[in-house]
Computed example of a mutant assay.
Amino acid sequence: MKEQDSNLKFLKAKNKVEKLKRFYTHLGVYFVINTIITVVKVMSNMNMGETFDQAFYDFSTLATWLVWGIAIALHAFSVFGLPLILGEDWEERKIEKYMNDELQKD
């Protein structure tokens, strides 16, 4: 039983690390891609005669940051916020419940 608890704790820790890793990868991609998009749009708009300020503060230039930023915020909430609301052992309780349900069916 002790080995099973140890394995369960290891799997939970590994799952948390994977979630963090996916979030930080998503965040990194967000910054790199949006920076590239912004530079391209600003340069394109400046070539069409706009000033830097006009090109940079154009809604279409900043819309990608905004929309994708909302997605990043939701991702961050799922990684950091849900455990605070549902409790750290929420996943463990759900897994246990479903395993017990399956065992009772047999």
Rank of each mutant, 00 (worst) to 15 (best):
Asp106Phe: 08
Met48Phe: 03
Gln4Tyr: 10
Gln104Asp: 09
Glu102Cys: 11
Glu102Tyr: 14
Asp101Gln: 06
Lys105Tyr: 06
Ile72Val: 14
His75Leu: 04
Phe56Lys: 06
Val79Phe: 02
Thr38Cys: 12
Ala71Phe: 08
Leu86Pro: 01
Glu50Ile: 00
Asn100Thr: 12
Ser60His: 11
Lys105Asp: 10
Leu11Gln: 12
Val40Pro: 00
Phe23Met: 13
Val40Met: 05
Gly28Ala: 10
Thr64Glu: 03
Glu88Tyr: 02
Phe80Trp: 15
Phe77Ser: 00
Tyr57Arg: 05
Val29Glu: 06
Arg22Lys: 15
Met43Pro: 00
Phe31Met: 13
Leu74Thr: 08
Arg93Val: 15
His26Val: 05
Lys21Ser: 13
Val42His: 05
Phe23Ile: 07
Leu84Val: 08
Gln4His: 14
Ile85Asp: 04
Gly69Tyr: 01
Thr35Asp: 06
Trp65Cys: 01
Lys41His: 07
Asn15Trp: 13
Lys16Asn: 13
Ala13Phe: 12
Ala73Lys: 05
Phe80Gln: 08
Ile72Lys: 00
Val42Gln: 02
Ile37Tyr: 04
Glu3Asp: 15
Phe80Ser: 06
Leu27Ser: 07
Lys9Arg: 15
Phe10Pro: 00
Asp58Gln: 11
Phe59Pro: 01
Gly87Lys: 02
Thr25Ala: 13
Gly87Tyr: 02
Pro83Gln: 13
Lys97Tyr: 12
Asp5Thr: 09
Val32Pro: 00
Met43Leu: 13
Ile72Asn: 01
Lys97Glu: 14
Lys2Trp: 14
Ile72Gly: 00
Gly87Ile: 03
Phe52Asp: 08
Met99Arg: 11
